[in-house]
């Protein structure tokens, strides 16, 4: 489902003397449907960079990133938009939403963009929020005012609202208590059972051991120091 080949990435900082910083080269990995692959490596080794390149908000310098049938490295914006709508989900560490939109609608939105009716989308959002222990009195409020843990759970609910065939998870269990951590791990297991290909970053080793079928150490992709 996800296949990365010979991927490299560098940043050019035009405003700092056009310094070119190579951050990745020769990256390769695959994730099969129903499989969960964990990225490991020290902070700054390039785990998040790799995730973002798969998501499409970081440009690849060379190589290919196939998600389903689309090569994200060379796809047109509208193809990536469509991929994100239908195929590829992303639970990031940060919640980025329009202020003042009710939590329930924030979670339902991915379904609405797919053409699901408002009632059905809200029902799905409500069941996820319930599972993630977001009290119903908070649903009409914007999540921008919530605590970090609550925002993270809203973000997870949004990421799991649609059953994406491919899913990117960036520290999904960070800042969660034991109960909610358990709920999230169950959601991940359910997604795998439905055949989702999952690429994730888990600093929580117990969680990683439980849901990941294998791990890939991104230090192998670090460019050899010049």
């Amino acid at each position: 489902m996800i296949a990365i080949e010979n991927l490299s990435k560098s940043f050019t900082l035009h405003n700092q003397g056009a310094a070119v910083i190579p951050v990745m080269s020769g990256a390769a990995l695959t994730v099969a449907p129903g499989e969960c692959v964990g990225l490991i490596g020290a902070s700054g080794a390039g785990k998040s960079t790799l995730m973002r390149m798969v998501w499409g908000n970081y440009l690849a310098a060379s190589g290919s990133i196939r998600v389903g049938t689309l090569d994200v490295a060379t796809a047109a914006p509208r193809q990536i938009i469509r991929l994100r709508r239908e195929t590829l989900g992303y639970v990031s560490q940060f919640l980025r939403v329009v202020p003042r939109v009710p939590t329930l609608d924030v979670v339902a939105e991915p379904l609405l963009t797919l053409g699901v009716t408002k009632d059905a989308a809200r029902a799905r959002a409500a069941s996820l929020l319930t599972r993630l222990n977001i009290p119903e009195r908070l649903w009409p409020l914007s999540p921008t005012t919530f605590s970090g843990g609550e925002q993270q759970r809203v973000n997870i609910a949004r990421g799991f609202a649609h059953s994406y065939p491919a899913l990117l998870l960036d520290e999904p269990t960070a800042s969660l208590d034991a109960t909610n951590r358990e709920v999230v791990l169950t959601l991940i297991e359910e997604a795998k059972a439905k055949g989702a290909a999952i690429l994730g970053i888990f600093h929580d080793e117990a969680a990683r051991d439980r849901v990941c079928d294998r791990v890939v150490d991104v230090r192998a992709f670090t460019p050899k120091a010049a």
């Binding site: 035009h14 056009a18 973002r52 499409g56 908000n57 914006p77 938009i81």
Partner: peptide, 13 residues
């Protein structure tokens, strides 16, 4: 390009 790509990984000075 894609909005978040241009904003998160801008290429031009």
């Amino acid at each position: 390009g894609l909005t978040d790509q241009v904003l998160d990984d801008p290429q031009h000075a």
